[in-house]
Amino acid sequence: MAENAACCACSESLSEEETARQLEEILEEYRDKPGGLIPALQIAQSRFGYLSETVLKKISAAFNKPYSEVAGVVSFYSFFSTVPRGKYLVRACLGTACYVRGGKAVLSALKKELGIDVGQTTEDRLFSLDVGRCFGACGLAPVIMVNDDVHQRVKPSKVGELLKAYAAGEKGDAQ
């Protein structure tokens, strides 16, 4: 599985036919695999950005499972989203190490800067905000992740700058 479920790389919206075609491809690969439902959902989300009702219905048909069961799996796991998400998923870590080193202040700064609450997406569909449970980069607390990039020792005052770099279409981590 080369694609990463955490990332929502959907920059442009796909046409209906194209979505259907790509979905068929994914289902072809996973429908007969034991326990293939979750990987199929993960790849579909990374491809389309979120899991729409249409997509979920097709997946449930392909796996021969009731829609309610598939929806139950989707709602159980926090990574799945049934609403469109931003191009960049910003996650502020609130694990213990980040918490005791000021992770909450970073989250407040992110909320203020983006003008959205946790779980929401900016109007321009550029950023979604979420909290993380520990990215395992505790030595660098407090940490935030933007898609797959880890940013360390984030200062609340520097959050705006960091987001601007992404908005400008650059990778933003100054490397």
Binding site: G95, T96, A97, C98, Y99, R133, C134, G136, A137, C138
Partner: peptide, 10 residues
């Protein structure tokens, strides 16, 4: 590895 503050396995 879900415990917050643990990254040995990583």
């Amino acid at each position: 590895e879900g415990d917050p503050g643990a990254y040995m396995d990583r």
